[in-house]
Structure formats: structure tokens, C-alpha cells
Design a binder for these strands. Structure first.
Lengths: 152, 152
DNA sequence: CAGCATTGCGCAATCT
DNA sequence: GAGATTGCGCAATGCT
């Protein structure tokens, strides 16, 4: 799935310019400033009528606060998302391990079963040999998945 | 190899201000302008010595091209990432299913084993009671998880 | 209408 | 040097 042709994303934006002035490495809080896009180059000075942001005082008061809150939320959400992905990956590993364990157990059980069956057959032969000479029946009976080829 | 050991200096804080003017509402978009952040509020005015972007003609020529390319790459990368996460999740589901299957099989085998063992024990008793008590060998074989305590 | 959570997207720094 | 990753902020949208 790849979108080769990426055309302009529809609907967005107002003519707001955001200046981000990041502070320096010291734990200083950023004081990003908002610049109301100067009408440079023939931009309309006053917004005609349609502007989500309305560019009123929101630009610098509760707006900033909202942004910061959202930024926090975003960070949190992303962290969670990442964590979840990691957990899922680990889950895969665990399940894989358990799978191996189970398979090993199956193998073991199968072997045990096969041994027991062989033993059983042997006894049957013995009995047949001693008492009734009609062993043919027993040998061709039904089950036979015991692949052993030990035939004394 | 996705190692979380990435040191994160991540010092993106340079005194660069990027003004994004993306007025799309009218389908038109202005060239993003770089503004040398005016010294408002006591920030450093204009230390014209270090500026990654240098704000030269890069602003509008090959710069834009690079940006677009990168945007594409980013999109691709993110898509992949998402896909991978999904795949992993599915893997979990598959593994879970298989686990159940295996467990069922184990249960079945265990049951079979138990039945056979019982049968075997019965015969052994019969034999011992009647003819030859040489069954001891078989009974003490090795395995032991047959917890049955049914003694007819 | 508020308020956090998700998601798509662009930018820039890194990594490969 | 070009694409791939990654952290981050913004804005739209979803969900309560």
C-alpha cells in the first residue's frame, strides 16, 4: 500500500504562522511566539470571514495553554502506543516459547504412547502364542501408527 | 537492530524560528518563510553566526524539494511501522490459537496414555494372578506421570 | 461547551 | 549524499 501520488491534503489551515522559538538545553521552558502572519506580499490583512482560529486573543492566552496541554497529551499517547507495541512484541516471544514447550511435551507424550502400545502388542503376541494360535487377527487389527519395526 | 540505547542529546534548540505559513484554505500556499525571530522579549537578538539553515536561498529551491522528499519518506516509514505493529498483533493471535490447539492435543494424548496404562495394568494383574509374575519390569518402566490410583 | 486522547502531517536532527 | 527513523509540535477529530 503506497500512495505514490500524494496530493495536497485537503482542508486545513488557516493563515496562521507559528514561530517556534525553542529554548536552549537548559530546562527552560519554551516561549514560542505566535506571529499573526504579516500581510506581506499581498496577503489579506483582515481575515475575510472564515477562520477557525479567528485569530483573536486566542493567539496568546488560553491558546498557548491549550497547546501545551495537547502537547503533553500527545506525548503521553505516543509513549503509551510505543509501550503497547513493545508489550505486544514481547507477548509474541512468550507465546513462541510456550509453543515450543508444548510441542516438546507433545513429542514426549507421543513417544510414551508409542512405547506403551508396542508393549501392549508384545503382550498380545505372547498371549496369542501361548494359548491361541490365531495371531493373525491381532496383527492386522486396527491401529497401527506405531512405526516401530522391532519385530522379535 | 532497534536499540533503545540512543542517546538523546536531541538538542534541537537552536535559535531558529520556522514560520510555517500554510494557508491552504484557498488552495494556495505561501512559501514558508523563515523569520529571524525578532528580539522580542529579551531573546538573543541576532547572533548571526550559527544557523543551520543559514536561511540562504535554501529557503526556496532545493530546500523545498528536500522537504517534500523527506515528507514522503516519513509517510512511508510510518506506514510501515504501523503495518508492522499490526502484523505483530496478528502474530499474537495466531500463536494464541496454535497454543490452544497444542494444549488440546496434549490433553488428548494424556487421556490416551492414561487409558492405555490402565489397560496395561489390568492385564498385568491378570497375568500375575494367573501365571507369571514377570510383569514387574514393565510396570516400573521409567515415566511416572500416570497418577491414576484406580486399582481394581 | 470542555478536555483529554488519537491521528495525520510537516519539520528537523540523526542514523544508515 | 539520499532515504529511513525518530522526537516534536500543530491541528483536526474522536471520545467522554
Amino acid at each position: 500500500m503506497s500512495k505514490p501520488s500524494q496530493q495536497r491534503p485537503n482542508t486545513d489551515q488557516n493563515g496562521v504562522s507559528v514561530i517556534q522559538t525553542q529554548a536552549h538545553s537548559s530546562g527552560l521552558q519554551q516561549v514560542p511566539q505566535l506571529v499573526p502572519i504579516s500581510p506581506s506580499g499581498g496577503g489579506k490583512a483582515t481575515p475575510p470571514s472564515k477562520m477557525k482560529k479567528t485569530s483573536t486573543e486566542k493567539d496568546s492566552d488560553e491558546y498557548r495553554q491549550r497547546r501545551e496541554r495537547n502537547n503533553l497529551a500527545v506525548k503521553k499517547s505516543r509513549m503509551r502506543s510505543k509501550q503497547k507495541a513493545q508489550d505486544t512484541q514481547q507477548r509474541v516471544n512468550e507465546l513462541k516459547e510456550e509453543n515450543e514447550r508444548l510441542e516438546a511435551k507433545i513429542k514426549l507424550l507421543s513417544k510414551e504412547l508409542s512405547v506403551l502400545k508396542d508393549l501392549f502388542l508384545e503382550h498380545a503376541h505372547n498371549l496369542a502364542d501361548n494359548v491361541q494360535p490365531q495371531v493373525t487377527e491381532a496383527s492386522n487389527n486396527n491401529n497401527n501408527n506405531n512405526n516401530n519395526s522391532k519385530h522379535p
